[in-house]
Design a protein around this nucleic acid. Structure first.
Lengths: 154, 154
DNA sequence: ACATATAGTTAAGTGATTGAACTAATTTTT
DNA sequence: AAAAATTAGTTCAATCACTTAACTATATGT
């Protein structure tokens, strides 16, 4: 493929991914209650999916430093949405879980977002969505391989 | 489509888009010189594409407040990468353009990113890329319509 | 027992953002 | 032509999310 063609694809991708992400964030912001930021919603979501979960796991899943996790979960704990529970057998570890309020808030938010996505999805054939996600996940796999390749250099 | 199926697609989409964006950001960060953040690179890129460009245009394109633009361009001007030029016929307006250093830095960065994307693209058929972008852009169009619909309510 | 590794926190600093109040310049209305 | 409204951009105070480096406390390996 020639350079011109590649540049055009780069422009298309950067433009559309920027716009879709931005709009996605704004739509989610509209759905979630004012007490949560989008990042905080993602964190709640992750903790709930893990069941029990530690700071280190969040740090690795979100590719951020553990100190960033500490401040994020401090904010969530301050709002009474999550709780820390010290592990008995290894007292360095703190397990995170949603409080009753956190779980309820997440449940409501998930419901709203589900409805929103449902309405968007009516514009697509199921096959088109799946094909799109397949390519997207293939790209994701390539990134994983690139990262592994890079780590082996070290 | 049933709820279960929708939830699965939501999970797939959120997971893959988060990961791809994150990795994309990290790869770009690797390419751009240490003096630039990713946001600053995007801003430089936009100013260059516009030729002449104002704060208000950046604000609208990036969906951020004008006060955020002011601080962003202050940082770029502080590094000597862009210049402000007051419009003669409307003295409220300041035109932004890349300085010689800014243009050179952007040129180098674009080249590196072009090489990177080229290497990633070898993993895909051209048709697969285009099909992916078509669906992505369709989603983007839907967001635009939703936004317009919402504005008409007001 | 001593050295090393791990889990998490603290502290200082930065970048990106919002919102409200503001200045200066331009346009519209009366 | 004067007054009112709009527009372009800035300033200020606050918040969030993040980084890096230094730290505490606990656990593990030799």
């Amino acid at each position: 493929m020639n350079n011109e063609k590649i540049s055009l694809l780069i422009d298309r991708y950067m433009k559309v991914s920027f716009y879709v992400n931005k709009m996605g964030e704004l739509l989610i912001k509209d759905q979630i209650c004012d007490v949560l930021t989008n990042e905080q919603y993602y964190t709640l979501r992750f903790i709930a999916q893990q069941g029990l979960c530690t700071s280190t796991e969040i740090s690795e899943a979100f590719y951020i430093n553990k100190s960033a996790v500490t401040s994020n979960i401090n904010r969530l704990e301050g709002k009474g949405l999550i709780e820390r529970q010290q592990d008995r057998s290894d007292r360095r570890v703190f397990h995170l879980k949603l409080s009753k309020e956190g779980a309820e808030l997440l449940r409501e938010t998930e419901h709203k977002i589900h409805k929103l996505v449902e309405s968007i999805m009516t514009n697509f054939e199921y096959e088109e969505i799946v094909r799109f996600l397949d390519t997207y996940e293939k790209l994701s796999q390539i990134f994983i391989q690139m990262k592994n390749g890079k780590q082996e250099e070290m």
